[in-house]
Every structure is written in structure tokens, then in C-alpha cells.
Design a protein around this nucleic acid. Structure first.
Lengths: 237, 237
DNA sequence: TCTGGTCATTTTGCATGCAAAATTCAAAAA
DNA sequence: TTTTTGAATTTTGCATGCAAAATGACCAGA
């Protein structure tokens, strides 16, 4: 197990002894806290795929009782980050290449929809913001600074989804991204198609500027297709 | 509250006394059972939007302890069927017209993607099956039998998503449908565009037969647009 | 050595206990 | 009459207890 028990003994003592926590009102519910922590640990790779998640150990680690831990595990299972084997506990779910490809396919579809809606609904402010991000991304691209390029690329995608003015879409997109961001696949994909993607972004910006939903959709639809192909190439090689 | 306590007293007694349950191995986990039950009660309208969900009462009603009930409520909250107000319990979430419209928009996007993928990947068996469903639906349409028409319509949509051969897509679609199926909106929408939708289905079938992904996508994209408009009409009137 | 079986230990799933927060309701004050 | 206060009650969130199931250690016999 790739866990990091930063002093289980102390943690246990904190929980077991009557040591006062901050007033409940001032805190978020514990299960939320635990959920966020576990999610981070999985996304960051502290808990590797296949690791067994023992609720007693986790509760010791996080200095809470088993109840909120178990609640968080069930939520993580619904999010698709862990699997719950009845009577056999929870494991970090290993995303197969197949599952990863499927998720990416869905995400691309979502982003295409977002692009179409955004073309209609985007505010001038948002468009300006995106222009700025895009310009900076071009600079980083020209400079060969991959890290910043990808960061800006990600910000643009988030902004695109926000600009669609659909809260359900935003939430869904975020949730799917969490699942995909784990492991090596994201990087694997991201580092392909470095130049091609730049052109596509250019076209997307043009469509958004013109508030041309159809064109934005077509551009992103191409993105769907290219991404699928890139994924396939990456996985076969 | 629109609950249906089919003898709370007896239920309580069952839970409280040492009365044996079926062996655990033979059962699904209780929280799953409870989750399914509560979900049904919400979708069926037994628990109306705005109803307060008191875990003690629910646990009495379902003859289980509060723990699995609370777990189920948290899962329902993540599914978007209830909201969890910290320290103030759970309520059945009232879907605003805005939220409902957003959900439908996302579902339409998902189904469009499904149509495109299905055009590529659908097996001959699935296509045949869909042809049969479609033929029956035409009959019911001609006969003016709305109820069966909608049932078949729904089956076709499910099959379409399945034919996309993407498990993530299938799961996502199912989850979104659950949220939308509640309340009066589904019917409200379904009963509009009765004839127009028939034509669109015709076109979709043609595209699928030809394995023409692009055409299938375009047809469903039109569906997105028309559905949005229909929703708008329905809500304004 | 390998197989199968028994028993001790650990882990899981659920029930329940308990303190803090929220709600209610009645009586007092404005 | 309306508002305020505050004590009693209910509800929530978490901790913990406990029985059933799973795991693993050990040993006997093939």
C-alpha cells in the first residue's frame, strides 16, 4: 500500500481521547473532508490503483472514526474512483485502457456541446478572457514551454465549459475530468498532437468570436475524432 | 410528507428485536437496497420535491438502522436527487425549470454522441432489433397509442446508447435519465412534438442503416435544438 | 511437497449511543 | 397583538460496539 500514515499513533490518540475538535459549525462535514482527501490521494497517486482501502487504517490515518470514511468510500465508488467489493472492502479502481478511452470519448462529446452552447451564450467578458488565455498559450507554444502550454490549455477548456452557461454540464465535466486525470493517460494523450491541437484551438477561437455555434461544434467534433485516433495510436504503440 | 409507512410499528420491531435477516451473503448490501428504494420513491413521486427526509423515520419505515439510510442519502445527493443541508438534513431536490432544461440539453448531447458512435459500431443484430422496435413504434404512432409509443421510443433511445459500445456513456445516460424522469417535465416534454419526432426517428434509422455517423449526428443535433425549443415553449405556456 | 480442513484473527456491515446543533413552543416583554 | 427569549425536544453527525464473513496460520494426511 502506498499510504502515508503521518503518525497513526498520534492520530488515533487525537480521535480516541476527548480532544476537542473545532466547533462543528465552523467545519465542513467530516465526510466531505475525508472525501476530498481520499480523492486527492487517489488522483495524486498516493493511493495506487489496486491498493486495498481498509477503513480502520484510513480512519486512523485521518484521525476520524470509520463512519465518515466509509461514507466517503461509497461516494468515491459512485464517482468511479474506487470499487466496492461486497464484504471484501474497497480497492482503488484500475482504469483499463478501454475505460479510459471511453471516458475521453464522453468528455470530448461534452466539450463539443459546450463549444456549441458557448458560441451562442458566451459573454464578451468571457470571450476576452479566453482571447487572452489563447494568446498566452500561443506564446508558450512558440516558446516550446509544454508545461505552461498544457496548463493554459486546461484553463481554456474549463472556461469553454463555463461559458456554456449550463451548471449540469459544468458539474458533469468536472466529475469526468477527475476520473480521467488520474494516472499516466492524461499526460500520454496531452503530449501527442501538440501542433495539431494548436490549429484546432485557433479555429475554435474564430468560431467563438463569430458566435458561430455550428462551426464551433464542427471544430470540436473534429477534435473528438482526432483525440480518439491519438488515443488509439498512443495505446497501440 | 408524502411517505408511505406500511406499518412503522411492525418494521421497528423487526429491526429492534433480534429477528434474523436472511444470511448476508445472499443479500445485496443494505445501503444498496435502501438506495434503490429511496430512488424509486423519489422518481415515482412517493416522496415529493421539497419533502424533508428524516433518517430516523426512514430507517423505521425501511426497517433498517440509520447508518445505511444515511449512506444512501449521501449517494442520492451525489446523484442529484436530494440535497443535503449541513446539520439540517436532506430534502428531495426540487428541479427548477432551469435545471431541468440544462439536464435535457446534456442528455441530448449525450444521445447525439451515442448516435454517431452507434452508426459506426452497431452490430447487425442491434440494428435489426432497432428496426423492429421502430416498426412497432410506427404502428403505435399510427394507432394514436401514445403510451406504447413513448415506451417504445424510450427503448429505442436506450438501445441507441447501448449500441455506442461505451460503458461510460451508458452509465452516464442512465444516471441523467433518472434525474430527469422525475416530476411532470418528462411527460410535458414527451407530449409535444409527437409527429415531428417521428420524422426525426425515421431519418435517424436511415442514417444508422447506412452506418453514416455524420448524418446520424446531424439528425440528433437537430433533435437537440428542437427539444430545447419545445421545452421553452412548454415552460413559457 | 502438496492438498484439504480446522481454528484464531482481522475486516466488514450494520446497529446503536451520545453530544452538539437545530427546532419548537410557550411564556414574558414590548 | 407581536416579538423575544430560553428551556425542552428533536435531529444530526460522528464514534463505537458487535456479529457474521473473510482471511490466514497451522497442521494432518496423501
Amino acid at each position: 500500500m502506498a499510504q502515508t500514515p503521518d503518525s497513526p499513533t498520534k492520530a488515533r490518540k487525537d480521535a480516541a481521547s476527548g480532544m476537542k475538535r473545532a466547533p462543528i459549525l465552523a467545519r465542513r462535514p467530516l465526510h466531505e473532508e475525508v472525501l476530498a482527501q481520499l480523492r486527492d490521494m487517489i488522483v495524486e497517486g498516493d493511493l495506487a490503483a489496486g491498493d486495498r482501502l481498509n477503513d480502520a487504517k484510513l480512519s486512523e490515518m485521518l484521525a476520524v472514526s470509520r463512519t465518515p470514511v466509509r461514507e466517503a468510500l461509497k461516494l468515491l465508488a459512485q464517482e468511479g474512483l474506487v470499487e466496492l467489493l461486497p464484504r471484501r472492502g474497497a480497492r482503488v479502481l484500475a482504469l483499463s485502457e478501454k475505460a479510459m478511452g471511453e471516458l475521453l470519448e464522453v468528455i470530448c462529446g461534452i466539450e463539443r456541446l459546450a463549444a456549441e452552447l458557448a458560441a451562442d451564450r458566451m459573454s464578451q467578458d468571457q470571450l476576452d478572457h479566453m482571447e487572452r488565455l489563447h494568446a498566452r498559450m500561443q506564446q508558450r507554444f512558440a516558446a516550446g514551454d509544454r508545461k505552461q502550454y498544457f496548463k493554459l490549455n486546461h484553463e481554456i477548456h474549463l472556461l469553454l465549459v463555463q461559458a456554456a452557461c449550463n451548471d449540469a454540464l459544468i458539474a458533469l465535466h468536472a466529475s469526468l475530468l477527475t476520473r480521467v486525470r488520474r494516472g499516466r493517460y492524461a499526460a500520454l494523450l496531452a503530449h501527442d498532437r501538440w501542433a495539431e491541437a494548436m490549429t484546432e484551438h485557433e479555429e475554435l477561437m474564430a468560431a467563438l468570436r463569430a458566435h458561430d455555434a455550428e462551426r464551433a461544434g464542427i471544430v470540436m467534433a473534429g477534435h473528438v475524432k482526432h483525440t480518439r485516433e491519438a488515443l488509439h495510436r498512443a495505446l497501440v504503440s
